[in-house]
């Protein structure tokens, strides 16, 4: 079996994979930044008492979580032009990932904020802080710490989800594998190389997660009693 495996062809295609790797990396970073923006906005809406803000955020989060990312991507790719909005594929891809991941990020941040004990909020209230002061000085800095590990988990999911962008012909890692598979009829070589690249990205993020957890452990967070 291995005698048929052509490392030579892989070497030949390395520049393409290098390009795909870089593309997946940067479009994931941009999408994750977008997801954070979407998530923070949704979460802020969701935490308000006003139903006019809360209900749309809840519906949005439910819709995103209940439908496949592929369907959302196709809606933007095929649906938007029919509605008269024409956007480049790459932009649509990043938009889909941001809008999709943003819903999950919103829930992660919300869980982080809700994990801060009522006593912390009351200490802020009792010392005369306004809602925004409490959020900025007491709740968010603490919520931030609990949110980092699950956010990095979501980043890992996003990197893998970005493979779907190959279906709207964005040149990224999976697309590179597809090209090798179809040009040379070498799907094994193509997709194993693709997988190896994802693995490298995964370990990068995992190292980041581990070192962030070590950093968080160095700073005391919990009340003893």
């Amino acid at each position: 079996m291995l005698e048929n495996f052509s490392f030579r062809t892989i070497t030949e295609y390395l520049p393409l994979f290098g390009y795909g790797f870089a593309a997946t990396l940067w479009l994931s970073i941009v999408s994750f930044a977008g997801a954070l923006a979407v998530g923070i906005t949704l979460c802020a809406m969701n935490l308000q008492r006003s139903q006019a803000l809360k209900v749309p955020a809840k519906i949005y989060i439910d819709v995103i979580r209940a439908t496949p990312l592929l369907a959302q991507l196709y809606f933007l790719y095929f649906g938007l032009p029919r509605l008269g909005v024409v956007l480049p594929e790459l932009f649509i891809g990043i938009l889909a990932l941001s809008l999709n991941s943003g819903a999950y990020v919103a829930e992660i941040i919300r869980a982080g904020i809700l994990s801060i004990s009522r006593g912390q909020v009351e200490a802020g209230i009792a010392s005369g802080m306004t809602y925004f002061q409490r959020m900025r000085l007491v709740v968010l800095p603490q919520a931030f710490r609990v949110t980092i590990p699950p956010l990095l988990g979501q980043a890992i999911v996003l990197v893998k989800d970005s493979a779907l962008l190959s279906l709207i012909s964005v040149s990224e890692l999976t697309r590179a594998g597809q090209l090798l598979a179809s040009d040379r009829f070498m799907p094994a070589e193509g997709f194993i190389t693709t997988a190896a690249c994802y693995l490298a990205l995964y370990y990068g993020l995992k190292t980041l997660a581990a070192s962030s957890e070590r950093w968080l452990r160095l700073r005391p967070t919990g009340n003893l009693k």
Partner: peptide, 20 residues
């Protein structure tokens, strides 16, 4: 109320210090 609260200190059973 926020102004009034600056004149009224409150000490909790569970301390509620800011852990960070």
């Amino acid at each position: 109320m926020t102004e009034l609260r600056t004149e009224v200190g409150f000490v909790f059973q569970s301390f509620n210090l800011y852990p960070h």
